[in-house]
Design a protein around this nucleic acid. Structure first.
Lengths: 182, 182
DNA sequence: ACCACCATGTAACAGGTTACATGATTAA
DNA sequence: TTAATCATGTAACCTGTTACATGGTGGT
């Protein structure tokens, strides 16, 4: 029987395979990927870490520092490593997300078409800026490992899909708007 | 000052614009779209409805039935309609989701490549089946309204993006695997 | 005989956020 | 002097899930 851990647990344990880290370090590491696929709030990180210790997945030691706050360094245990491995080997969860824009769109008949179109423009603009951000990291992350590169490519595919969809939705709604206006 | 409501509140209030409905009806309506963009658990629906009444966004009346359980029918109030409108007019939230597969992939160096490839195949298979499901509803939903159609098209773009990404990821990882094996 | 539909809810739990609180050091 | 970095945490709140509980009706 394998020990169950959550995705957030797994993210922290995974980062701890790379060395002894503090909560602060872990947050930086999680944010470093632009929070692209997993970035818990820091309060969550500080809440989870003691739980990991309590469950035997990590140990902590305090490092006394002068001139700056003391810190807790966390180290992965064998049990933690095993729990992580179990999680990694489980088939991934697949489910289409809840997309707020779709909810607004679905009730589009209740909304002024111009506002709806503006909403879609917002989506396209944000997707475009995400795409640009992702395209603008060639050597840094992408060459580092196939895996990091594939996560970036996932984000790019996603952003492109959103842009395509938003463009076509905008076009269609604009056409409708024009048709009913004239 | 506008009254703040959550997306789930908005989903229920939105459905209530179409008439007086019970919790049961609302769940069916939410699931009808294949749960594509917003499908709360029924316990959540039954928890939220009384809150909506308490906040003055809906009224309820009991309908006594014979041969089957009594039911509560909920009706949207003016205040509820106004709160919904405020929510609909707010610019949509845009944020790339948390994708579990990416977390597994990011720590791909900890995982047997064959298992990783199998994970990606799962994603592709599920995305493909979603795509097929969405393609298989022409007259039913899609012609009904532009808005419903656009939500379906969103799902399709998303599914296609996932398929494209998974195919390319699988190819790349397979190549790497072959290279290191031979 | 069994299953699906109708219909509402409670209980226990998991996972997550924002805002608040503290406080020294260092670079612009 | 203003802001960022380092560093940890609490409190209040919100959102959501699964499992449990009940029980008649109508179709295969």
């Amino acid at each position: 029987m394998g020990v169950k851990i959550s995705a957030t647990d797994a993210a922290l344990l995974g980062l701890l395979t790379r060395g002894e880290l503090s909560g602060y370090d872990l947050q930086r590491a999680a944010d470093a990927n632009g929070g692209l696929f997993w970035a818990p709030a820091k309060s969550r990180i500080y809440a989870v870490l003691p739980q990991l210790v309590a469950r035997g997945f990590a140990t902590s030691r305090e490092v006394v520092q002068t001139g700056r706050p003391n810190k807790q360094l966390y180290r992965l245990t064998k049990a933690g490593r095993a729990a992580l491995q179990t999680w990694l080997e489980e088939p991934p969860v697949f489910e289409p997300e809840r997309v707020p824009i779709l909810l607004k769109l679905y009730f589009g008949d209740l909304l002024d078409p111009e506002i709806l179109i503006e909403h879609i423009r917002v989506v396209r603009a944000e997707a475009t800026s995400l795409k640009r951000r992702l395209e603008a990291q060639p050597a840094e992350v992408r060459a580092e490992s196939v895996f990091a590169d594939l996560t970036v490519r996932h984000g790019l595919e996603w952003a492109r899909a959103m842009i395509r969809w938003a463009a076509s939705a905008e076009q269609e709604l604009t056409a409708r708007l024009g048709a009913t206006h004239v």
